[in-house]
């Protein structure tokens, strides 16, 4: 059993509106899984189905091989995008209450909270009310409450919003550490640089349908266009440019270099390789820069959505 979570053929309607249309995803155990998609695509509905907040019209969800049932509540930690805490309740009381709702005993919850509060250096907030804290501080507490019961599956919806760069890094490190300790993470975000940085697998949802899923690296391989970014030094750049444009599809590139190079993106046809390009270029000019263009998560996102 290599998948912790398997969502198969899940559909959900709200009146005439179809929020999810036969969506299936597989989340491998121990991975960080990026759930991507434009606003209103159905990500939140899918997350709510996994959390048993919303019941699907059809399809099934299995966690660790078992169909979802109320005992799974303690196995999942969920940090929603729309999040908050009781404003007039004290931090400690509130964290204890939420931990107990997840099935921890009061004593155990207290012990773990102390550990986490010390770890994040927020121990002296215990008796403060939420309304006395800043938004970022409240977010930290929310994060602690989400992970406190050591769930198998962690679901973070835009976890970094509201954090300054230092705290965002702190949280990122904590997420990575939790993964090391065996947790599986579903990560929903619009910030592609953090997808790039964290995710092993991704799924892309658009207009209620899943349109892409797999290992990020495989997807990148699939989406690469056999394009190379080159910096060339030659006596007659214009002639070289025309010469190249006759043989390949050439566009202007933009990167930093120390020389006054001719900067180009050169797209090869399917049966040509980098070797071919290098030997061809070697005859015409001096190669200062040669890099394969790997599509970024951002490019893949925009391209897939636009083609869909």
């Amino acid at each position: 059993m290599s998948n912790l979570l398997e969502v198969s053929e899940v559909s959900k309607h709200f009146g005439d509106f179809k929020a999810l249309n036969n969506v299936s995803i597989q989340v491998p155990k121990g991975s960080i899984f990026g759930l991507l998609g434009p606003n209103g695509a159905g990500k939140t509905t899918l997350i709510r189905v996994i959390n048993q907040i919303t019941m699907p019209d059809s399809g099934e969800v299995r966690l660790d091989g078992d169909l979802l049932n109320p005992t799974h509540i303690k196995d999942i930690g969920y940090l929603p995008e729309e999040r908050g805490l009781y404003k007039s309740m004290k931090v400690g009381e509130q964290a204890l209450y939420l931990a107990q709702l997840k099935g921890l005993s009061k004593i155990e919850a207290k012990k773990r909270l102390k550990y986490w509060f010390d770890r994040l250096e927020i121990g002296d907030w215990w008796n403060k009310k939420i309304q006395e804290l800043s938004k970022g501080m409240a977010q930290k507490i929310q994060f602690v409450v989400t992970v406190l019961h050591n769930p198998k599956l962690l679901i973070f919806d835009e976890p970094f919003s509201g954090f300054d760069p230092i705290n965002a890094n702190l949280i990122k490190d904590e997420i990575l550490r939790l993964r090391e300790e065996g947790a599986t993470v579903i990560f929903s975000t619009h910030r592609m640089e953090s997808v790039e940085e964290l995710c092993d697998d991704i799924a892309l949802i658009n207009k209620s349908n899943k349109i892409l899923e797999g290992k990020l690296i495989d997807i990148k391989r699939k989406y690469k266009t056999n394009t190379f970014e080159v910096g060339l030094e030659a006596e007659n750049k214009t002639a070289l440019n025309t010469n190249l444009a006759e043989k390949f599809i050439v566009t202007e590139a933009n990167f930093k270099s120390l020389n006054n190079d001719l900067k180009l993106n050169i797209k090869l046809s399917e049966n040509e390789t980098a070797q071919d390009l290098i030997s061809f270029l070697n005859q015409k000019a001096r190669i200062n820069h040669f890099v394969e263009v790997i599509p970024s998560a951002n490019d893949i996102f925009i391209q897939t959505i636009q083609n869909n």
Partner: peptide, 15 residues
């Protein structure tokens, strides 16, 4: 109050 403080989704993922 639970709605405006947005704690509701956290709570109903547990109960």
């Amino acid at each position: 109050e639970e709605k405006t403080s947005r704690i509701i989704e956290v709570i109903i993922s547990s109960v």
